[in-house]
Simulated assay, not measured.
Amino acid sequence: MNDDADDRPDEPSRNISGGPGGGGETVVPGDDSEPETRAEAVVDELGAMYWQKAYGGQDGFECLVRTVLSQNTSDKASQPAHDSLMSRYGERGDLAESLANAAQDDLAETIASAGLYNQKSETIIRLANRVVDEYGGEESFDEFVKTGDPDEVRDVLLEMKGVGPKTADCVLLFSGGRGGVFPVDTHVHRIARRMGLAPADADHEQVRQAIEAAVPPEKCGFGHTAMIQFGREYCTAREPACLDGPEACPLVEHCDQVGIDELSGAVVDPAEVVAED
């Protein structure tokens, strides 16, 4: 997902990132004790603003495909591509086998709304072939994702060409239902560094490690989805709400505003602040 998603219309409620109809089971995690870290306090506030859900249960291979479709685009664009793909290939039995045998031109046309359709169709067919070759199809792969050792599952996913840390973590969260997994997309990367929850020059992996170390496992899933929504509505890349005054942002008391100058209205990537020091 890229920052340009901030300028798009509201996302549909049915998407991989959460929302009222985005899957998962509504829960009230843990107890009402005071948060032990600022990151946990932020996640608690986000949960109160948006939703608190326990994720898991999606089919592992379909979740992998769906997350590939969401790369470098918004859910508004990737959702129709996913629906078209499932309508064309998901009713032919094993999805992995169906996609492994798909003609790339036909698949690319089917998922065109997601953007980068030539690259994504090539990736999906390659992943499908690997799943068929190594697991015999989607059923055994799904079982591995849901019951295998989380570190092993993550390592296997990261070995697959076209699968990065965010994609692997989304599969662990939305399919495996693994606690303590906080996928880092562009929104999470920006917000965590801007707020001071991670070092200003941290890369995506360092942000993930910082948040997962500071947020209870049962709160990571909804923290991830709610932080994405907060990034769309309040903490956008170029015009964060705090530029309209502290009262405009519901999380201002938790935020270091790294890279934001309220007086001049200047907004830069937090890493640029470190580079200047």
Score class of each variant (00 low, 15 high):
E11S: 14
E11C: 00
P12C: 06
R14A: 14
R14Q: 13
R14T: 11
R14D: 15
R14H: 02
N15V: 01
N15G: 13
I16K: 02
I16P: 05
S17K: 02
S17L: 04
S17Q: 07
S17F: 08
G18Q: 07
G18F: 10
G19Q: 05
G19C: 03
P20L: 08
P20K: 13
G21V: 00
G21I: 00
G22D: 05
G22N: 04
G22A: 09
G23A: 10
G23Q: 06
G23Y: 01
G24F: 04
G24V: 04
G24Q: 01
E25Q: 07
E25L: 11
E25P: 00
E25K: 03
E25I: 12
T26I: 07
T26Q: 08
V27N: 05
V27R: 02
V28L: 14
V28A: 14
V28Y: 11
P29Y: 10
P29G: 09
G30D: 12
G30N: 09
D31C: 08
D31K: 10
D31I: 10
D32F: 05
S33D: 11
S33M: 06
S33W: 07
S33I: 09
E34V: 15
E34Y: 01
P35Y: 00
P35S: 10
E36G: 14
E36P: 09
E36S: 15
E36H: 12
T37Q: 04
T37C: 05
T37M: 07
T37S: 12
T37Y: 00
A39Q: 04
E40N: 10
E40D: 13
E40H: 12
E40Y: 03
A41W: 00
A41Y: 00
A41M: 11
V42N: 03
V42H: 01
V42M: 04
V43T: 09
V43A: 10
D44N: 14
D44Y: 09
E45C: 08
E45D: 11
E45I: 01
L46F: 10
G47Y: 03
G47K: 11
G47I: 05
